[in-house]
Design a protein around this nucleic acid. Structure first.
Lengths: 354, 354
DNA sequence: CTGAAAGCGCTAACAG
DNA sequence: CTGTTAGCGCTTTCAG
């Protein structure tokens, strides 16, 4: 069968009604299970629906009820291993409440974020889960959305300047645990590769690093701070540059997983081994981390839970109204110590540079 | 503001019309850019839309036009590293044509697949991209969907018994390349961990393996064939079992990436190193493969392209009608040789068992 | 407990 | 070139 356009006409509630010899109102009632319907009639209707392979038109329903039972989720890139578990968590929560989740990528671009949010509003999603893109206070599209009555819950990071409900991770504390561990292993020249400074969580991770340096009485060394952007490439480049510098660090703390993969690759190419030549710790669990050698010490975030609880929170606001004050859940990250930072006995290089 | 339900009423085309002092028909016209509209009026309308933060109701539009510009995508689990790139490819193609992609997980369960497809039909998606779950010929939900006029394109694998458009990878050839490589490295005791035999691509990969054994004049050994299910756990368990058997293989070919990760973990726990103790090759690229050591030899599939071309094909069928004959694109996999199968000189174990 | 009918926001004739 | 209006499939009063 060649041609264009729909060839088959969708079966509607009207046809079901006709086949079951009842009115459309009655069919609607059995669909919604609302009022008690005469069992015999309900049965006739059910049978009619089955035999016609009837699929209620959610579009028409939404137009009437003004609820789509759609949730929008805005992330930077599903291809980034950090997100799949978060999306999965959100989806599982959504399904529990009979919502469908639509996920869109922004590739870290604020302009795409605006477009995506706009599309989601056209689609009349009931609420939005938002992992914001880096920007300099470009938040009008978000405030407009909230003002229009669509609840928004931020995940992983919050925009500065406006107050929104959110589910985040205590990044300062996570970074502190990690860097403290490095210090406890005897390191004094600890490098960091940061994220983009427009992002709160990047700032927090740097802050945690600084806190521990201060706590340990270590001087901050600008040559040991690489300014990354959370992408693989920058982790790769900055690691190479730092390790090739006159006074390289003996330990490196990388602010996120993508950059961590880049760092690992750089070390591999430089022929440097962990922990023998350098200790490596990464904020974010790494894909395949327990299968490969060496296992890398990481600060693992509860991505699934971020998504799950964020969606739960969002659905709560959709169904019970938005709270007077934005809600904020802060989850804890977990330090997972692996081989990449294990103590070395009689290593060839000193942990102390001076 | 506490309370329940929408507090703000959505801006409609009618209000825009009133504000711009034109009729709704005219507003619709400028929205669709259809008939030539007087520039001055168009401008007035544009201004009104902007100032009201108007977002056209796609729901109402869909009800009228009978097109949602929604694509459904059914996968087993976004958390499986094989899928994100495929989803991204599909999404990119969708966006190019102004479609929105909705992705749902089945967790390999046919019952969930049925439910998901049903939900997608309720939502009146214009077409469906389907990565089928393993089942024994349970395809009525699919044929019903197609019969109802919704195009379906299968990705990665096709159901047996029915004919559908598809984008797949030549798995036989991919497996052949890989096992031939193993043979060329001198291996004669080559083990395989297979996928579930209800899946065509699992069958194909086993077939490729068998073809090369025959080509090389090697006897098939049942103790070297582990029957897995494409999940990490089975790769882990079967690898342990096989390596602990009286006559372990000198090379192992694992049929997919999840099981490959499991195999890697098993080898790590057993203290076996690649390629010194065992050569390892995996069908599917592994996450982080180029960052870790040893790099694992893999048969890499073009996941992104599968998704991208599948979505393009689907959109073609939506917009130009379904072809008389199902379309089928077969893409090639690529063998990427890495350290895990490199030749060993003067190894402690023989490549030949007898 | 069931039927009839209005109307959700938009598009697409059609009339002016 | 612009305005009017019917109607997409469903839910939801309101009568019967």
């Amino acid at each position: 069968m060649t041609g264009s356009g729909k060839l088959t006409t969708m079966v509607t509630i009207k046809e079901v009604a006709r086949k079951a010899k009842v009115s459309v109102g009655t069919v609607s009632n059995v669909l919604r299970g609302s009022t008690r319907v005469n069992p015999a009639i309900r049965d006739r209707v059910d049978r009619a629906m089955k035999s016609l392979d009837y699929h209620p038109n959610q579009i028409a329903r939404s137009l009437k009820t003004k609820q789509t039972h759609l949730l929008g989720m805005v992330i930077s890139d599903i291809t980034n291993p950090y997100f799949p578990r978060m999306v999965r968590g959100a989806e599982d929560a959504a399904i529990e409440h009979d919502y469908l989740l639509v996920t869109s990528n922004t590739d870290h671009q604020i302009e795409r974020e605006k477009r995506v949010v706009s599309v989601l509003r056209n689609r009349r999603v009931d609420g939005i889960l938002l992992v914001i893109a880096p920007s300099d206070g470009d938040t009008e599209h978000i405030t407009n959305t909230v003002a229009s009555g669509i609840p928004v819950v931020c995940l992983d990071r919050v925009p500065r300047g406006i107050r929104l409900s959110s589910v985040t991770v205590d990044a300062v504390r996570g970074a502190e645990m990690c860097v403290r561990h490095l210090v406890s292993m005897g390191h004094r020249a600890i490098g960091i590769i940061t994220g983009p400074m427009q992002l709160q969580n990047a700032i927090d991770r740097l802050q945690g690093y600084r806190n521990i340096l201060a706590e340990a009485g270590l001087q901050e060394d600008p040559t040991l701070i690489g300014n990354g952007d959370f992408r693989t490439e920058s982790g790769y480049l900055l690691t190479k540059r730092m390790m090739l510098a006159p006074l390289p660090p003996t330990a490196l703390f990388v602010s996120n997983g993508m950059m961590g993969m880049g760092a690992l690759k750089a070390l591999k190419e430089l022929g440097l081994f962990c922990p023998a030549d350098i200790a490596l710790a990464v904020f974010d669990e790494l894909p395949g981390n327990e299968s490969y050698s060496p296992g890398v010490t990481v600060v693992a975030q509860p991505e699934y839970e971020i998504g799950y609880r964020g969606a739960k929170m969002l659905i709560g606001q959709i169904e019970n109204g938005e709270p007077a004050e934005p809600l904020a859940i802060t989850l804890n990250a977990e330090l997972r110590i692996r081989e990449s930072t294990r103590l070395r006995i009689g290593t060839t290089r000193s942990h102390v540079r001076e």
